[in-house]
Amino acid sequence: MGAVMGKLTTCDDAKTNLNKDWDAKDFSVFTCASAIHFAVQKDIDPLFFDMVQQNSSYDPRKDQVMHKCMDESIEYDDRIPVRGDHRPNWARFGEYLYVPVQRWLHNLEHGSIVLLYHPCVDVDELNKLRQLVTSCIYRHVITPYIKLTTERPLALVGWGSRLEMNSVDEKRVIDYIKHFGNRAPEEIIRDGKYDEYLIQEAKTVSEEDKNLCPNH
């Protein structure tokens, strides 16, 4: 579908023209502008979205989108996209200083779970969610995402679904990962080639991610 996936070509070598998706001089996408981080408010309910519930004919395993080269911009209408066109080379699994949506959407297409957090999120809540995600699924990407709200500064995203939250409910998080990890058009375990500002590589959880959240 469009450019060939995962190939090092002039189309997308995961190294060149990266400012088409994000100017690395723009610190605002990963920096909290305030000295005070958001307060935890456990009375704010999570906000869940699943395309299957919205459209009973939608099948996330048969969904098709396009791979677009680095000479073409990609924009999204949704505040937090759960599907869409993306770059041919996906991000290596792990945590980033920042990785643009045009990359991590491709990870979702392979069955990954992406953890998004607002830069001003409560650090303890972020650490709780990070620990759950990294212990549940190898194919994860963790990155700041400035478009999250103050009410729900944490989010998990799978292909066709998302869960926004203020605080971490362990059971709900694990249930989400078990249900929406691997629910995607392509179950590809192979790591990506894009690694700009990767700060922590993902570690294996179970063989080929067949057993999600094995210790929970």
Rank of each mutant, 00 (worst) to 15 (best):
Q64T: 13
L8G: 07
I113L: 06
A33E: 11
C32Q: 02
G2V: 14
S206F: 11
R172W: 01
F48S: 11
T204H: 09
P144M: 00
P153N: 01
M5K: 11
A202Y: 05
R190F: 12
T204I: 13
D191E: 13
Y197F: 15
C11N: 09
Y96K: 02
V52H: 02
V52Y: 03
N215V: 13
R130E: 14
M165D: 05
Y96H: 06
L132K: 13
M165Q: 04
L108N: 05
K42Q: 07
K62D: 14
R92H: 10
L18D: 09
Q64N: 12
L212D: 06
W90N: 04
E207Y: 09
N127I: 06
L126C: 01
I44N: 00
C69K: 03
I142P: 03
V157K: 03
S112V: 06
N107F: 01
T150C: 05
P81I: 07
I113G: 07
A14R: 05
G2N: 15
H37M: 11
L47D: 10
D85F: 06
Y138C: 06
E164Q: 09
K62C: 11
S167M: 02
A202F: 01
D175S: 08
M70E: 12
L148G: 07
V205P: 06
D21G: 01
E207P: 00
D71T: 13
K15L: 12
D209R: 10
E164S: 04
T134M: 14
D122N: 15
D195E: 15
E170M: 15
R190Q: 15
L148S: 08
N19D: 12
A24H: 09
L126M: 11
N166S: 08
D169W: 01
L129I: 04
C120W: 02
L105Q: 03
H110C: 12
A184N: 05
P88H: 02
R139G: 08
C213N: 12
C32K: 00
L212N: 14
V133T: 15
H216S: 15
M70Q: 10
I80H: 08
D195G: 07
C32V: 02
D59N: 13
A91R: 01
E164R: 02
R92D: 12
G160R: 09
D26G: 00
A91H: 02
F49E: 14
H118A: 10
R61K: 13
T9M: 03
A184S: 14
D71C: 04
K210C: 14
L212M: 11
D122A: 13
P185I: 07
Q131P: 01
V52R: 09
Y138S: 08
K68R: 13
W22K: 00
F48Q: 10
C120L: 01
Y138H: 14
E196T: 12
D59G: 04
F48D: 11
T10K: 08
W104H: 04
Q53V: 10
Q54R: 13
V40A: 13
V101G: 02
L97C: 05
I174W: 05
K68Y: 11
R79K: 14
L212W: 05
L105C: 03
Y96N: 08
K42G: 03
C136A: 15
D26C: 00
K178L: 04
S167N: 09
I44C: 00
V40C: 07
R103V: 09
D122Y: 00
V133L: 15
Y194R: 01
L129W: 04
V141F: 03
R130W: 12
A3M: 13
S161T: 15
C11T: 11
D191V: 08
M70I: 12
T204C: 10
V121C: 07
K178I: 12
L116E: 04
